[in-house]
Write a protein that binds this DNA or RNA. Structure first.
Lengths: 203, 203
DNA sequence: TGAGGATGTTAGCGAGCGTTAACTGATGAC
DNA sequence: GTCATCAGTTAACGCTCGCTAACATCCTCA
């Protein structure tokens, strides 16, 4: 029996628990013994599956960055026009933010703990993903300058990635409702780019 | 000569450098020797000014949380109405986000590294600050449910706090322009709450 | 059957880190 | 002039942590 026979392989199990722990207490705040304990083995046992603690973080960050970019490109390519592409990008990002909270958190928090080469790779994937957004948003809101669009896109990322901060409280909307709300908020924020040309002249 | 005679006391100098380093590499990723080196003294020399590394982080987080809350309350109290109060809250938060980037970063990233008592205090201050916003936003957008308002406020925080992520690149707006853009984006996002009642029935 | 690989275990090494101890020089008070 | 205090130094302790070594167990398959 090879490892892919099990529903989730031990590797994947380790990655998921590591992501959760890293997101909760930070990369340096989690020991290998704790990661091992989370999957029911000892700390050193992890080294049968990963070269080291760094390798786990690297695989997590490269993975999420790559999946975000791939899904984003696909959605834009399949969209019928700029507005549809933007909506698809927003919906896709929201799905990631809600379903992979720990990864979204790590993604912009622990990047600097990576080896140089891994960090460059992740940054490159992130940059391409941002460019995808900037291109689409620029077409939907042609009145805004590229600098404005770029800053707005980062702001919208911050908005959409805010879900992890509200730890599953009962006083919050459910998944579907939250998803729709975030989509509205994002579209509302980007809508402000249209009136940008008006107030820009006041400076 | 007491310590307040100098423009910035050694304590404040240490706090500023520690904030920068913690934000860059994480609390656990920075050693006391590095903090000391950043202000031109040895690591152990820091213990003449602080009880320990933890105490520095605690003072930073309690300080920023308290100042955010104090400034927020003052601005709301001085505002002529809900719309003016909201605008004042947004402008105030943007000032913090732009001027105290490292602190804003630490503020929602390293909270869990605090001792129980300090953490409770910071959380309480943060909660009060959120409540200030929720109350004002709720009055400006009475059609939205409180859960929606709460989630939206957190989203707007994420939006406004996104500035630190874009390390001072030349392709970004200047301070005044960025501030105005963020304000527009935030107002645009919250504006989406008005139409919330419309699409909510579709579920 | 039994060799070998996969997947664990425990013991322990070596480095790094926060912290303390002991000491030193400068400065201001009386 | 002496003495206390402040603000710094270096040395070193003790603990934690990532990782390796050596050994154990089970499963597979020729």
């Amino acid at each position: 029996m090879n490892s892919t026979n099990t529903a989730v392989s031990r590797r994947d199990q380790i990655l998921r628990e590591a992501a959760r722990l890293f997101a909760e207490r930070g990369f340096h705040g989690v020991g290998v013994d704790e990661i091992g304990a989370a999957v029911g083995i000892s700390g050193p046992g992890l080294y049968r599956h990963f070269a080291g603690k760094d390798a786990m973080l690297a695989e997590l960050l490269v993975g999420i960055s790559g999946r975000l970019l791939t899904a984003g490109k696909r959605r834009v390519a399949e969209a019928s026009g700029p507005e549809a592409a933007l909506d698809a990008l927003i919906r896709g990002h929201i799905d990631f933010a809600i379903d992979d909270r720990p990864l979204i958190t790590l993604h912009d928090r622990e990047l600097d703990r990576l080896r140089e080469s891994d960090r460059k790779l992740v940054r490159q994937l992130q940059r391409q993903y941002v460019e995808e957004w900037v291109a689409v948003v620029g077409r939907v809101h042609p009145g805004a300058t590229e600098r404005e669009v770029r800053a707005a896109v980062h702001g919208v990322f911050g908005l959409l990635n805010s879900t992890p901060h509200l730890g599953a409280q009962s006083s919050l909307p459910g998944r579907a409702e939250m998803s729709e709300l975030l989509r509205r908020l994002a579209l509302g924020a980007l809508g402000a780019l249209d009136s940008a040309a008006d107030w820009r002249v006041t400076y």
